[in-house]
Write a protein that binds this DNA or RNA. Sequence first.
DNA 1: CGGGATCCTACTCGATACTG
DNA 2: CAGTATCGAGTAGGATCCCG
Lengths: 132, 132
Amino acid sequence: MVTNGEHLAAKFFDRGDVFDPDCPTRLILDRIGDKWTVLALLLLSKGPLRFTELRDGIGRVAPKVLTQTLRRLERDGLISREVFAEVPPRVVYTLTPMGESLITPIRAVSDWAEEHVPAISAAQNSYDLDNA
Amino acid sequence: MVTNGEHLAAKFFDRGDVFDPDCPTRLILDRIGDKWTVLALLLLSKGPLRFTELRDGIGRVAPKVLTQTLRRLERDGLISREVFAEVPPRVVYTLTPMGESLITPIRAVSDWAEEHVPAISAAQNSYDLDNA
DNA sequence: CGGGATCCTACTCGATACTG
DNA sequence: CAGTATCGAGTAGGATCCCG
């Protein structure tokens, strides 16, 4: 990953630096920026869900996109995917312990967002009026 | 962890409408998902900064993109933009009270991210090996 | 110094059809 | 049911140049 620079040691043994352009922390922030990732995690915070249950809970999502989202989360170790060899097939997604530990921070953000929707809308209207 | 998937969506709707496809909360989550928004906010949490200071602090970011980010934040009422009629010109960006109230939640997320970078990298490597 | 204007690439997301 | 395959569109982000 990091190939040069004096901060190499710090990067390796410290927690990392969000402001370093090469810091992998950016990758996590990018995940959260995904359109459905946060929603999927919040849905799963209440318990394991099947593919269709996630799709219905999220709303309008192309199956391809939902699969991409879930695969990424699985690769990151945030959720686990369990396949049951039945007919019809059944696949259950579950938060891993690490995934569960993410719930509190992202819920804090989404709670903030819901709380401040009116204030932000007002600010936007005001801004648009001043720049009409 | 209790599993009761039937009325999952209903429970979530009780505490908000994040899962409503048309909910404006999505807009805030999308903003946070922007590539530089969180970084800019965290930088500004230490005090007012000029355009160039933000650019240098963030790293490699095209001025056009940084301007877009800052304009959006200003429109949302999260930061304020103050222009000084001097030569050379000076523009200072400052967090508004509402912007400051966002710092705690997003710092919680970024702290989580920095903490779990090693675990996530390990999970990714393991996943990639199993699917080689 | 702090952008605005312009052009371009990449990637995400979406819709639809099909399958083990 | 739980995806995969394919095609296509919209847009955030990037590179570069220029101006008050």
